[in-house]
Design a protein around this nucleic acid. Structure first.
Length: 120
DNA sequence: TTGTTGACTCCCG
DNA sequence: CCGGGAGCCAACA
């Protein structure tokens, strides 16, 4: 059994709330976990979380709207496949329209998409 | 225990 | 638009 830090527990808690077919950036997760500058640590936390069934690690991507990987292309391929299965359409091999799929917990407070009416 | 590295991001030149 | 550096928190040697 491994010990998790407060930060890591918060990260996993937030990630578990990302809905299917939606994504959130490392930076956003870090922010929600209480350490806005710790985007990097979010990555290492998720790395250790691969395999944990209740943690949708693949729904966390970089600020440019793409899949991050250094060397481990196998993991990246898996992540891309999982996202595609959830309905996400890529515009390039590793990138997609972040504005279309990005999720923010704030929206959970709204049962409908109010933005269309708002802008008229 | 200390130093380095990493699924990152933001800020400057 | 691109490259460098700082900031953050863990993992690892």
């Amino acid at each position: 059994m491994s010990e998790l830090t407060e930060f890591q527990r918060r990260v996993l808690h937030v990630v578990r709330q990302i809905p299917e077919g939606r994504v959130a950036t490392y930076g956003h997760i870090a922010h929600l976990a209480g350490s806005p500058r710790a985007a990097r640590a979010v990555g290492s936390t998720l790395r250790n979380a691969i395999g944990a069934e209740d943690v949708p690690w693949h729904r966390v991507i970089n600020a440019q709207g793409g899949i991050s990987f250094k060397g481990d292309i196998a993991r990246a391929e898996t992540q891309r496949r999982l996202l595609q299965v959830e309905g996400l359409e890529f515009r390039a091999r590793w990138t997609f329209e972040l504005e279309v799929y990005e999720w923010t917990p704030e929206e959970a407070f709204w049962s409908v998409d109010w933005r269309d009416d708002e802008l008229g």
